[in-house]
Design a binder for these strands. Structure first.
Length: 507
DNA sequence: TTTTGAGTTGTTCGA
DNA sequence: GTCGAACAACTCAAA
């Protein structure tokens, strides 16, 4: 596939490196991207092994990313993550330089200012990022400057895994089987630990001020819920992983679908920004020998690893099908008769659909920048199938509001829900928000937390307040249409409408 | 090349 | 109330 050309590959013996092998290395530029960590960082390790002073830097690339520049919640996270990375670099005698993009210009400037003879970085997999990195690599190597990239983000290199026919996988199970066969038994190369000291250059080039980038909201400051929930940065990531690997992972198989249980790892934003890598995650959750685990514990570990597998699969799809974020993987869905329901979309975004489990999820998202995975499916199904709004509307909203907004996972997930993606849900699989609520939030802990105006309703009525008798509503202090909305659509009717629309696409 | 088995996460209806 | 079948065919991956 031609797109493979966009994914940079390392020649086994880079020309520049061979030519300079005898010369003393000058300075190494270390370009941080989506790998904001010091442990398990192959580019950093290789830069240190080179034996020259290292200049670590980060480039803000809003212009180059275009439509996929980080959303509001991601920008909030990025600020904290860069701050944390700078602090850990300083503790090791180094620092993080900040520059604005375009990356090509920032790198040229740094090369001129430092006289560096090498640029190392860890790869990204978005089409735009791969293309611009490849252009930089080509340009630098042509001038005898060593330019090397590494894989810090994935267990596998998407261009190096294919079916027996040489095609990219489109179905998860065979993909994961093939990948695991490559990785067994330890999940790939062992992660390296963080260096103790990083040699500084004789003089530091100037850095921009992080505050000047205005990544965090000022007025209004909507980030209080994010601050309460998260600790961006490598230390925060490792603390979360350690806590999860100590206990929760062993119950993950049984409890991961309960949004009120706090049973998931919460690692998604840390993984997105590369504050921790999938190899480290694999190592941590498989540290206990399988022989020590009971069947439930073993199921927990395997189920969790398969979620890491889904992340890999999403990247695999993004690399091989570059239009994944923009256009349906199943081409016939281009003609799907989507609605244009502004009011419905606004109600969904604000958590005022009248379906408590959907509204709870959307409010959790707004408040914390994150939503439990089970609820993501329910809320996404509601947008796409009950409201018949385009999946890209949902993907856009998630892109702006999620701290873990990731082009690969977000795009693949929305296409899956809409039925137009890889391994997509069958058309008739339409989530019923009342049944899903009753099944996965039976005691109502989740809905009561995020939809407090319904808190006093009994469990049996909590997921369908419009079915309550007036006397029950009054006892709970609920006035439908005033304190909490009536359902904005009738689910049974909406389901029929969605099935008709899907039939139309098929025929 | 052809065949075969299988495919993350569900709901509804009727026996 | 419980349970199994229907809901469509189609595509993917491997034998």
């Amino acid at each position: 596939m031609a797109r493979h050309a966009l994914i940079e590959s390392n020649p086994p013996f880079p020309i520049a490196r061979r030519r300079r092998a005898a010369a003393r290395p000058l300075t190494t530029l270390l370009w941080f991207n989506r790998d904001l960590r010091l442990a398990d960082n192959p580019a950093l390790a290789a830069a240190l092994a080179r034996g020259a002073p290292v200049v670590p830097f980060y480039v803000l690339e809003d212009g180059e990313a275009g439509r996929w520049a980080p959303g509001s919640a991601s920008r909030w996270w990025l600020h904290g993550s860069l701050q944390a990375l700078d602090a850990s670099l300083r503790a090791r005698g180094s620092a993080l330089l900040l520059r604005r993009g375009p990356a090509r210009e920032a790198i040229e400037a740094l090369l001129a200012e430092t006289g560096a003879d090498a640029l190392y970085w860890n790869r990204r997999y978005e089409a735009w990022a791969g293309a611009r990195a490849q252009a930089i690599k080509t340009a630098l190597q042509a001038r005898g400057i060593e330019a090397r990239s590494f894989n810090a983000a994935l267990l596998h290199e998407p261009s190096r895994l294919a079916t027996a026919m040489g095609q990219p996988y489109r179905v998860f199970t065979p993909f994961w089987k093939a990948l695991r066969a490559q990785l067994e038994p330890v999940g790939g190369a062992a992660p390296v630990t963080a260096p103790r000291r990083i040699a500084a250059p004789p003089a530091w080039p100037r850095s921009e001020a992080l505050d000047g980038w205005a990544l965090r909201p000022a007025t209004p400051d909507w980030a209080a819920g994010l601050r309460d929930t998260w600790t961006p940065g490598e230390a925060g990531a490792q603390a979360r992983l350690a806590a999860f690997a100590r206990q929760a992972v062993y119950a993950y198989g049984e409890r991961r679908n309960l949004p009120g249980a706090g049973a998931t790892s919460g690692l998604s934003p840390h993984l997105h920004f590369g504050e921790i890598g999938p190899r480290q995650v694999w190592q941590a959750v498989t540290a206990r020998p399988p022989g020590e685990l009971d069947p439930a514990g073993s199921l927990g570990v395997q189920t969790f690893l398969s979620e890491i597998g889904w992340r890999e699969f999403s990247y695999h799809l993004l690399v091989h099908f570059a239009h994944l974020p923009e256009a349906p993987l199943r081409a016939e869905f281009a003609a799907f008769p989507w609605e244009h329901d502004e009011a419905g979309r606004a109600a969904w975004q604000r958590g005022r659909t009248g379906y408590p489990i959907v509204d709870a999820g959307m409010r959790e998202l707004w408040h914390t920048g994150w939503m439990h995975n089970r609820v993501r499916m329910i809320a996404a199904s509601f947008l796409v199938k009950d409201l018949l709004l385009p999946w890209r509307d949902g993907a856009d909203w998630f892109w702006d509001t999620l701290v873990d907004a990731d082009l690969a996972s977000n795009s693949a997930g929305w296409q899956w829900v809409a039925g137009c993606g890889a391994d997509a849900a069958p058309y008739f699989r339409v989530f019923n928000p009342v049944l899903q609520g009753a099944k996965f939030d039976p005691q109502g802990a989740y809905v009561r937390r995020w939809v407090p105006e319904l808190r006093a309703l009994p469990d049996a009525l909590l997921h369908a307040p419009w079915t309550a008798r007036p006397v029950d509503l009054a006892a709970a202090g609920v006035e439908l249409g005033r304190t909490y909305p009536m359902p904005i659509v009738d689910h049974a009717c909406a389901r029929q409408r969605a099935l008709r629309a899907l039939q139309q696409v098929k025929g």
